[in-house]
């Protein structure tokens, strides 16, 4: 009997853990918002983080966009060729990039690059008592560490998403025109024809949410660090995994709401 009940206990613990985690996350985010009201924003750190998430991530995000766009174009070609609608490749690539892949890929790449860094940085500060030192020096860690990262991420994610989408479409264009040897002007014309403003802006709105999610989770996980370097490694992993999952989950939710 105990044997069976133990499994239920495990499931129960897991559910509680998830709820607890989600609750902590929301409390954490709430504290961050309170911190903005109380102390406003640390502008210096904000710019640091914006540079880190933005320009410093340009190459990785750009490369991702480029190759995804190229692959999209090529794959769309194989499908479109069958029914003779190769002129629809441009809109296909552009829609996929602006609505879906631009925001999501950017968010995932920034999570991998910056989210992990946020978690490990704050985690290290936590275990070496630097966070405590901050508090004792009457500096709110939310104000000093969390809020700048979350806001920077929220602001820069749409910007980087534009970069990804644009470079992706460019990559698609290069493949369309030079590798597949089709008429590049058709590619561009059809994009203008079929893409709507709402496609672009809903994609960017998604990116804003993804930015909030990834920075919140990553910094939150950083503060959870304990138990030395191993603990930092653990929370970094958790931060990346959780952020990615929440981003993909949110993507579905947002897509079903926005589009």
């Amino acid at each position: 009997m105990d044997f069976i009940l133990r499994y239920f206990e495990k499931i129960g613990l897991f559910v509680l853990y998830i709820i607890n985690e989600l609750g902590s996350l929301i409390i954490y985010l709430w504290n961050c918002i309170l911190s903005i009201l109380r102390y406003s924003v640390n502008v210096n750190n904000l710019f640091d983080q914006m540079a880190f998430i933005g320009m410093d991530s340009f190459y990785i995000v750009g490369l991702t966009g480029l190759f995804v766009g190229m692959v999209l174009s090529l794959q769309a070609y194989y499908a479109a060729r069958i029914v003779g609608v190769t002129y629809m490749i441009g809109p296909t690539v552009a829609l996929a990039m602006t609505r879906e892949l631009g925001p999501v890929l950017t968010a995932l790449m920034i999570t991998a690059r910056c989210g992990s860094s946020m978690a490990s940085e704050i985690g290290t500060m936590k275990i070496s008592e630097q966070v405590d030192a901050l508090e004792v020096m009457a500096v709110d860690p939310f104000y000093f560490l969390s809020v700048p990262r979350i806001i920077a991420s929220m602001v820069m994610l749409p910007i980087m998403s534009i970069v990804t989408s644009l470079i992706g479409i460019f990559g698609g264009y290069v493949v369309y025109k030079f590798f597949l040897g089709l008429n590049g002007a058709v590619f561009v014309d059809m994009i203008y024809k079929y893409i709507k403003l709402s496609d672009i802006y809903n994609g960017l709105l998604k990116a804003v949410f993804f930015g909030i999610i990834l920075a919140t989770i990553s910094t939150f996980k950083g503060f959870e660090a304990s138990g030395g370097s191993k603990g930092v490694g653990r929370v970094t992993t958790q931060a990346v995994v959780l952020s990615s999952i929440y981003i993909l989950f949110a993507d579905y939710i947002l897509t079903s709401i926005l589009f």
């Binding site: 710019f47 914006m50 540079a51 933005g54 320009m55 602001v155 910007i159 534009i162 970069v163 644009l166």
Partner: peptide
């Protein structure tokens, strides 16, 4: 860095 961030952001927004 402030200038860089500003330039970058404005450039992307203009696009």
């Amino acid at each position: 860095k402030e200038t860089k961030v500003g330039l970058f952001t404005v450039a992307i927004l203009l696009i």
